[in-house]
Structures are given as structure tokens and as C-alpha cells.
């Protein structure tokens, strides 16, 4: 991702950088599209980054 020009064909805006937004952005990138992931807070991650463990597998969330 990184710095980008503002005019770019084949790009998609994803609003919200939680687990849903991140997954959509990753999939779109792999499908050959440029993604602007727009997040209102200073970091992506959303609520999932606050969780201790996920259930029932108890994997670390981060």
C-alpha cells in the first residue's frame, strides 16, 4: 500500500480497518486491485486487537 497517487484505475476504498476491513483489503489486493484502507483511528486492528484470546481455539488475537 503506502503512498499513492489519487488517480488510479482498478482501486477500491475499504472504510474501516477492523478485522473485516483488513480481510477485505487483503483479498482485494490478492485479486489484483489497489486498496485504500480508510480508518478513523490511528491504527488498524479494530476491536479484535483488544481481545485476549479468540474462542474456542484460544489463539492469540494479535
Amino acid at each position: 500500500m503506502g503512498k499513492a497517487m489519487n488517480h488510479r484505475e482498478g482501486s477500491v476504498m475499504v472504510l474501516g480497518g477492523g478485522i473485516a476491513g483488513i480481510q477485505a483489503a487483503l483479498d482485494l489486493t490478492e485479486l489484483g486491485y489497489y486498496v485504500y484502507l480508510v480508518e478513523k483511528s490511528p491504527a488498524v486492528g479494530g476491536v479484535m486487537a483488544q481481545l485476549d484470546k479468540t474462542f474456542p481455539t484460544n489463539d492469540c488475537s494479535l
Partner: peptide, 15 residues
């Protein structure tokens, strides 16, 4: 302020 030229928009603002 920035204007992004995009073909589609995905809304995933969470809860």
C-alpha cells in the same frame, strides 16, 4: 483533504 478515485466501496466500520 484527499479525493480518492475508486471503483467500488466496501463499508466495514464495525460496531
Amino acid at each position: 483533504e484527499r479525493i480518492l478515485q475508486v471503483g467500488a466501496v466496501i463499508l466495514s466500520p464495525g460496531f
